[in-house]
Design a protein around this nucleic acid. Sequence first.
DNA 1: AGGTATTCACATGAAACTATTCTCTGAGTTAGG
DNA 2: TAACTCAGAGAATAGTTTCATGTGAATACCTGT
Length: 398
Amino acid sequence: MGVESFFEHYLQKTSFFQDKSILSSSYLPPEVLYREEQLREVANILAPALKLEKPSNLFIYGKTGTGKTLSIKYILKSLMATAGQNNIPLKAIYVNCKLKRVADTEYRLIAQLIKEYGEEVPPTGLPTDEVYSVFYRLIDKEKHVALLVLDEIDQLTKKIGDEILYNLTRINAELKNSKISLVGISNNLVFSENLDPRVKSSLSEEELIFPPYNAVQIQDILHQRAVIAFQAGALQSGVIEKCAAFAAREHGDVRRAIDLLRVAGELAERCGSDTLELAHLDEAQRKVESDSIINAAITQPKQFQAVLYAILLISPQKRNVYTGEIYEVYKTICRQSKLNVLTQRRISDILAEFDMLGIITARIISKGRYGRTRDIAVTLEGNLVLKLKELLEKSLQA
DNA sequence: AGGTATTCACATGAAACTATTCTCTGAGTTAGG
DNA sequence: TAACTCAGAGAATAGTTTCATGTGAATACCTGT
């Protein structure tokens, strides 16, 4: 079949997706299922903002994919709608603190807030105090209440400490006209434990926990979306159930389930099937996993790649690899590809990061008289290892 | 045999350094009046 | 004299190095039997 006729054929064929965007993580459904209680609480806590009183600061905990972000966005949306109808000067700002180069440092977070108020501040070169005073000026210019939602706030403090949170809680003392309330969202359930007590007490005036969804709930949520996302009859029976079961096993992460469903759909579509079958789900799961790992690996900087390549070179022969061995191999790799050789100290950190990313499994063991080291194992399946090795080799040549 | 003390090979932490990107300031220069 | 240019001082940030300290358990070394 020629390319042209392939395109023709492609156009003719109707997709069994009706609206794929429903399955993307940015989709905001008209109704949030199984979070009634949480929604009610959040609404209760934030409602005073409508009367221009400062709502209590709120802290929301819950594992990934438990609907935290979705719920908050949902609330903010209806809150703003009400405020708009009644001409209430209310401003809601949602910031994801994890986004690189957007809000992952104190300076950038404030800069981002300034942007939300319609002004710009240079990306660097200014003292942080300067940026703060610009922000104060902007926010205090006209009387209003600001709701500041900091998503993935634990990432922020992990990187740069909790000083910034202290500064944020102190903002109100500096303001004459306006008031600002903080809503922190964290994936880490024990986040506040290693926080400055002053910060902790003022930040968590109210606390809320989002429990994981169970399998039945995940099913309903998937169903709610699948009905609009797919053409009628596009799903083989049992697909949603199986998808939900996968996710429930992974501590109730709905986002994973939705991703899985979308990828399975794309897969099924690509191989020309009329329906989304159970087999596609299995394949999708493999694909999701290996894609994310490959992607993580090849977007790493050169030095990281060199380290990973070193690991992959040794790992087939041995079950357990130690830091020292990796470092030796790494050094020769560096010399071959004209990279400068980093310290073992640095490599140690890089290995720790790979562990966090889930590319390797590392645990610290003591070999008694023979020292202490990371015990590193590659958990990827053989096929993936080969593929990765190839990609890394190519990348390091260039 | 049983109990300590050592010791290894790193881990982990903190601080300092380097390079890059960007702003702001003020001295010196230029061009027009 | 006003406008312009350009070097230098300062900031923020990422990535790294340097220096310092921590650490779990296999071994070496005792000790008294």
